[in-house]
Design a protein around this nucleic acid. Structure first.
Lengths: 157, 157
DNA sequence: TATTGTTATACTCTATAACTATA
DNA sequence: TATAGTTATAGAGTATAACAATA
């Protein structure tokens, strides 16, 4: 017998307002992030990108050393070679060289910027924050997210 | 030049309270979910599990057909064979048979339940909702998450 | 015929370790 | 010596297609 999404959701709904313990909220947050993961993978696929390639594209705000990207992706530096190879082969990024000739800077090409913006806007459209919350609720959520995101300082993201 | 986490965060902090448009909130939510992903991967590794194996373990509330698990994981059914093989080899799950002999039900073993509970509690401890928010803030967050999670009805999770 | 799980195949992501070019 | 990127290797996740057993 399968425990369906709806049954699990009913379980959360049945909680009284006093149920705000860490495990409960963490479980709910996990459900939302799981939904976000599935949505993210679909958006990535629409642009013919793997999840890792998409995360890389979204991380490249400015030209960044490959090692820095590895930190953002949370993977070993050796992996970035292959990911960058594939993005470069598709013309979405470029390898640039600066004064320190050991370092290769990854930079978005104009086409890469276009794809990134498209992905970003599709992610925004499918975000549960967009589809399920009012303006007021989003304002409240933003404050809470800011506090939660503050913990990421000094950590990759 | 690298755009560090802190710089990006300052950018979000500089927004006025009127900045609650979908793209902004979606971006913030993405940052929090990215942090959650990295934290999830670390917790999984502490128990010698891959991310996919961990998601499978967390999804198995009750005995579930392999195809159902594939739906929860958001992957093709053929992948579940290998994932289940590895979890079974470690004694964390069991393949059971019901009346329909085509269907194999995956069920947690007692040891699997222990590992799942350990993972769940470590995830809860490291959740930004736990580490960054007060009781009141968690109460508010819970309401917002319930609305966002409601969109997952009828969808895998 | 349709469905469940499995197998075969190919590609990507992942970590580890050894290598090169540069500092 | 130390650091940035690459390569080689092995294991795991992923999709597609073909297959056996069961319904």
């Amino acid at each position: 017998m399968i425990i369906s999404s709806i049954e699990v959701l009913d379980y959360y709904r049945a909680m009284t307002n006093d149920d705000f313990d860490a495990q409960t909220i963490a479980g709910l947050l996990w459900r939302v992030t799981e939904q976000a993961r599935l949505s993210f993978d679909m958006v990535a696929e629409e642009s013919d990108l793997t999840p890792a390639q998409t995360r890389a594209l979204l991380s490249l705000e400015g030209p960044s050393p490959m090692r820095g990207l590895a930190g953002n992706l949370g993977c070993d530096a050796s992996n970035v070679t292959g990911i960058a190879d594939r993005l470069e082969a598709r013309g979405l990024i470029r390898r640039e060289t600066g004064s320190d000739r050991r370092i290769k800077l990854l930079a978005l090409t104009p086409q890469g910027r276009m794809v990134r913006d498209l992905v970003r806007s599709r992610l925004s459209e499918s975000s549960p924050a967009t589809t399920s919350l009012s303006d007021d609720e989003r304002r409240t959520l933003k404050e809470l997210l800011l506090k939660m995101a503050a913990m990421t300082e000094g950590r990759p993201a």
